[in-house]
Each structure stands twice: as structure tokens, then as C-alpha cells.
């Protein structure tokens, strides 16, 4: 079990300098190739926990082990971790989109020809070609989010951390991106997705942590997202499809429209 774990955190506590307690005594683990989500209401500490788990911030209390070791050089982790921060504006700080895409791979010492191959693949998914020469500030919010995602994926990470990654994407792009992320996951990339919107979670995660400063619940997606009571108690709106299914008295609560339709058809 230990060898398989990429991240193992215990008793994580973080308080901001203004006294705001963001995360208290939280635990977390991530295994190779896993898809994990951290859900919770606004201000529940999700983004802070994600930054701690991705080694961008250090917890004030608690311990965190990466690849079974407590002291891993940040440089080593950066080669393996890709991070999409909540605000794409923070991620795009170069003169052009192309320079932003090159930034990560250049920092980790990737060869140019390898980067060019990855870029071709990313271009197919994120439709980057028309944006490459543009300065990031000229992009729409959706375009910025696409570019920010491509920037994080350009290093071919072993673990991808996503902080509210789909908020500005249109439906078609969201579907395409989710499919691509799941393809990368099938090839071995682990994913940690943070979101306060539950509808996307069944498509990007198998295991969920419900966070409200502390880890309130942890389990398989279907266990947590079908638990109306615990979600409501922690300021989350249960999925409409799960609510309807519960009202119809279904035993196995579907989490997506497709599952719901299939359940109705099989009745």
C-alpha cells in the first residue's frame, strides 16, 4: 500500500496570517493513477488544502509524505505535478500564450521536440492554434481556462491538481476536456479535483473527500454524493438527479443523467 501512495497527509492544519482558519486536522491520501475529488462549500479550505497537497504551501501542523518520504525536493515534485489554479489569470503571466505554454516544460528541462509533440496533442483538445500568438490578456475567460489547463498538462504530469477547472468552459469543451483527462488517467495520470459544483465530480473522480475545514466524510463517489443529509448539513446542494431518484424510491442512486436514464430504462 505504502509504495503505491503518492501523497499521504495527516493532521493538516493551516491558519492564514489574518487568523482565518482554513484547514483543521485534515487527512488525505492519493494512490498512483487514482481519481480523487475534494468537495465542499465556498470557504471550506479546499484550495488551501490543494496547495498544501501539491507542495506549494507548507502546513503549520501535521505531516505530509510524498512518494513515502517526508523530505522530497520541490524540484523533483514539480517534474511530476501539474497544477491548475483557480484563477487562470494567475497562471498566464507571459507575453504570449505560446510563451506561457513553453514556460513549465522549459523550467523542468524538457527537450523542445518532446514539448512540440505534446503541444500538437494539446492543440487537438484545447484548440490552441488560433491563440498561440495572442497576449493572454486578450483572451476570453473560457480561452484563459483552456490555456491554463494546457499549460499544466504541457509537462506531462504524473499527478494533476485541478482547482475549480471547468467553471468557465462551455458544455462541449467541458465534455471534451473531461474525456481527455480520463484518457490520461487511463494511461496512469492521477487526478485531484477541487470543486464546489458536484455535477462534474462523478465524471472525474472515484473517491471523494467532503471538506468543511475538517474532512467531514470520505468515501466512494456514489457513497458521498448520494448522501443527501451529509451534503445538506455541510452547505452543499445534492445533485438534482440524485434527489429525483431518491424521491422515486430508487435503490441505487444515479449520479449522472446517463446513469439515471439507464436506471429508468432497466425498470
Amino acid at each position: 500500500m505504502g509504495d503505491n501512495r503518492i501523497i499521504e497527509a495527516e493532521g493538516i492544519t493551516y491558519t492564514y496570517p489574518d487568523g482565518t482558519l482554513a484547514v483543521e486536522n485534515a487527512h488525505f491520501y492519493l494512490e498512483r493513477g487514482e481519481r480523487v475529488a475534494i468537495v465542499g462549500p465556498n470557504g471550506s479550505g479546499k484550495s488551501t488544502l490543494l496547495k498544501i497537497l501539491s507542495a506549494l504551501m507548507e502546513p503549520q501542523e501535521g505531516s505530509i509524505r510524498f512518494y513515502g518520504k517526508e523530505n522530497v525536493k520541490e524540484k523533483e515534485l514539480r517534474k511530476k505535478f501539474g497544477i491548475i489554479l483557480q484563477n487562470p489569470d494567475d497562471m498566464l503571466f507571459n507575453a504570449t500564450v505560446m510563451e506561457d505554454l513553453e514556460f513549465g516544460p522549459a523550467q523542468i528541462g524538457m527537450k523542445r521536440n518532446e514539448f512540440e509533440k505534446i503541444l500538437e496533442e494539446l492543440d487537438e483538445i484545447f484548440s490552441l492554434s488560433p491563440l498561440l500568438k495572442k497576449p493572454p490578456f486578450k483572451l476570453s475567460e473560457g480561452e484563459k481556462q483552456r490555456v491554463a489547463m494546457a499549460c499544466a498538462l504541457a509537462t506531462k504530469p504524473e499527478v494533476l491538481f485541478l482547482d475549480e477547472p471547468f467553471s468557465a468552459l462551455d458544455v462541449g469543451m467541458k465534455r471534451k476536456v473531461v474525456e481527455y483527462l480520463n484518457k490520461l488517467n487511463a494511461e496512469g495520470m492521477a487526478m485531484v479535483t477541487v470543486s464546489h459544483e458536484l455535477d462534474i465530480i462523478p465524471r472525474v473522480a472515484d473517491r471523494v473527500y467532503l471538506l468543511n475545514r475538517r474532512v467531514v466524510a470520505e468515501g466512494k463517489v456514489e457513497e458521498i454524493l448520494s448522501n443527501d443529509k451529509i451534503l445538506t448539513e455541510n452547505g452543499m446542494e445534492p445533485l438534482p438527479v440524485a434527489k429525483i431518484a431518491a424521491a422515486l424510491g430508487m435503490k441505487d442512486i444515479p449520479l449522472t443523467i446517463e446513469e439515471f436514464i439507464n436506471a429508468l430504462k432497466s425498470k
Binding site: 514539480r78 494567475d90 497562471m91 513553453e102 514556460f103 522549459a106 523550467q107 528541462g109 509537462t155
Partner: peptide, 23 residues
């Protein structure tokens, strides 16, 4: 506060104090 966020984003993408570019 924004400069802190950008610094974090740079670190997230491997910045370690010296900016490297593709040769």
C-alpha cells in the same frame, strides 16, 4: 497579493529562482 499568486503559479510550473527558456 496578486504578485504572491503569480509567484505561486510560477513555482507550480517549476520556477526555482532562475527563469529557463527553451534554447
Amino acid at each position: 497579493s496578486k504578485s504572491d499568486a503569480v509567484y505561486l503559479a510560477m513555482r507550480a510550473r517549476g520556477f526555482d529562482g532562475s527563469v529557463k527558456t527553451f534554447d
